[in-house]
Design a protein around this nucleic acid. Structure first.
Lengths: 389, 389
DNA sequence: GCCCCTGGGGCTTGTTACTGT
DNA sequence: CACAGTAACAAGCCCCAGGGG
């Protein structure tokens, strides 16, 4: 079917009739221009809010736009502007409470800044899948890539890729010293909630109650959050002159918490435990119930995250609350920073993609950002009490 | 800075030198063509895997592509092909276990089919926000929109929008009779897990244990899943000649389950309760513990969803497991269906966007899909037992 | 003469730079 | 100067014509 009825440039010759050949498909700038009796360039000027268009002309164009239900093609715009206006989000691993909420916060913040989010979620976090995801996003010409996944290896994998676009990762550990192989190329920008501080909060709460034998159930070895929480616990213990016993390793799941709980029960000295997340704390609680260990009478427990269910554990869980939503927003504001977009100018209008001047170039001539300012909050409930004398 | 050093069509005249003017920015097809000594069209053919390119030529082109690190511009491709290759995903409401996992499953399935996912998540689910999200995605020229949000109103809102692209919603209730206002325009396609069947499973399990006074704690009134679960419970009760008492309304959160639990405890007759999700069941459990009600001795409890923590509640929760991951994949396969993409031909290759012939047109000339085939599974644990005689 | 390749030209929808009254 | 239009350009895809065997 040749000639879809679109007149491309309306030859100057005799116009055949008054019927302006109603375009069949999606209307284009030219259709609008024809209807408004102006050139397509004037339409463009109106669309982009440029000056130099008479009010009356502008009105006619806007009317034509409304009549035709015209909306500019993002593909054409992206091509001409050489900007996709989209950011890639990689959400790797189980969609737990934390990552999901951080992703949500990020998503909303991105939208508020006029960016589109191209999401590449994946359950697995192996290097191959992750690398592929990054490449796919690069192929999509996203302007930045965000990685939400606590796994150290994930961040490391991403660090090893020369994506050509800035990468912002949720990563609570400071960046490792750069490998010589990655000379000149800074690692991803890092944003996080201060896990270390949160862990100290939890531990010091227990110490303040009078506990001295405080054990720790960690998250998986590969998790940076887990490592930071462990470090916070260890430092707090050491500073108070308390013995830093070997922690028990878990994997974030309640099942591992259950196993850890059984190990704890076998330890006659322990009077308290700081568990690295709420799900595992639930598992510990379960083990205690099964063994007839009274909580908090025989064992005090502090969790981490404050998932919505924590208040309804039995007993209600003392834990450390993190603001994941804010974390997501922090990630987006870091992205804007790195992209050199001025201020928090949320493009409230019609989703106009914010114009930016490429400030920091590719992955930043200046060193990568590291933001770990946000501090969690201790929520005291019913699983903690002074140790029995 | 005029003339970015890109020669557009290599005039037939005298070539000034052997230096082929290394392009500064992102390489284009023309750069590849020049380097391989062929025309841009041949490059295109190689890229699209079309026939009609000699093996040797193909190799040269591929070498040039590799040398220049060339990747085709998705914007240009989208424009030429008139297809964005992307699908919009609206994830509305709290990022709970179910929706998050369904979204993840969908995301992976979409990727496997060569589609990109543009995500518009939002915490709130009011009509305005939802409508805006749909419009934003339409502006992005997504080829279909997926809505994951159990709220009936959400689906209704979306149904009322003439998006111009197919909409697939996770919705367990059958479509309501079309309003006259929406004449001719079918509602969104609906995909779901069979909530009704799951609820019957739960209820019949309790009945089978000998319970007769089985209460129900529902999800929020606006939730279709909640309504279906309630219906399943009611029907099962009625069919067995048991009294269908007024259910207690909850809101999915553990807190409402806690309140419901207190109400249940005050009911001297009730020996069992079917709670519409696991979080609320946790709340009921919490209330029982607090009141010294033995579970399952005095009260049997069945939940719904089988969140990973359910096995570590105290006691371990008997519940109904749903395969959210599969639901997400079902959604994607429905999308493919609606878009008229043949079979499950996962474009395993280089993310080649699958070519499709627009079969079902806009939102389907044929009636909307309704798929509710997948049936959940009862997981019996420790919160259910025969009633005490 | 037909098939296998290859190339030219035009089209996609906007943006930007330069002209022209 | 204020306003509008023309031309070139962005980076691909597709139809068709044509060279070589």
């Amino acid at each position: 079917m040749p000639g879809r009825g679109r007149v491309s440039r309306q030859a100057g010759g005799p116009v055949e009739a008054d019927v302006p050949a109603e375009p069949s498909g999606v209307p284009t700038m030219f259709d609008v221009a024809r209807r408004a009796g102006v050139s397509h360039q004037t339409v463009s000027r109106v669309l982009n809010g440029l000056t130099g268009v008479a009010a009356s002309t502008k009105e006619r164009v806007e009317q034509a736009i409304a009549d035709l239900n015209y909306t500019p093609s993002p593909a054409a715009r992206a091509m001409a502007k050489r900007r996709s206006g989209s950011i890639g989000l990689i959400l790797a691993g189980r969609p737990d409470y934390g990552p999901s909420n951080a992703a949500l916060g990020f998503n909303e913040a991105a939208r508020d800044s006029g960016y589109t989010v191209s999401q590449a979620s994946m359950r697995s976090i192996d290097a191959d899948t992750l690398t592929q995801a990054v490449h796919r996003l690069v192929l999509q010409r996203v302007e930045a890539i965000v990685l939400i996944s606590g796994e150290r290896d994930g961040v490391a994998v991403v660090s090893g890729i020369d994506a050509g676009v800035p990468i912002v990762a949720v990563a609570s550990e400071p960046a490792p010293p750069p490998e010589p192989a990655a000379a000149g190329r800074p690692g991803p920008h890092r944003v996080a909630i201060d896990q270390y501080a949160g862990a100290r909060l939890a531990t010091e709460h227990l110490i303040g109650l009078g506990h001295r034998a405080i054990r720790h159930v960690t998250g998986p070895a590969d998790s940076m959050d887990a490592a930071e929480r462990r470090r916070g616990w260890g430092d707090a213990m050491a500073e108070h002159g308390l013995e830093v016993r070997d922690p028990i390793e878990g994997d974030w799941l309640a099942s591992s918490g259950h196993a850890a709980g059984q190990a704890l029960i076998a330890d006659p000295d322990a009077t308290a435990v700081f568990v690295a997340n709420d799900q595992m704390a639930l598992g510990v609680l379960h083990a205690c119930h099964a063994a007839g260990v009274d909580v908090p009478g025989n064992l005090s427990i502090v969790g981490f995250d404050d998932i919505p269910e924590a208040a309804y554990f039995t007993p209600a869980l003392t834990t450390v609350r993190q603001d994941f939503d804010a974390l997501g927003r922090d990630v987006m504001s870091t992205v804007l920073d790195v992209l050199g977009v001025p201020g928090d100018r949320g493009a409230a209008g019609d989703g106009g993609v914010p114009g930016h001047r490429g400030a920091a170039g590719v992955n930043g001539e200046h060193p990568a950002h590291e933001r770990t300012t946000r501090v969690p909050e201790l929520i005291v409930r019913a699983t903690t009490a002074p140790p029995r004398a």
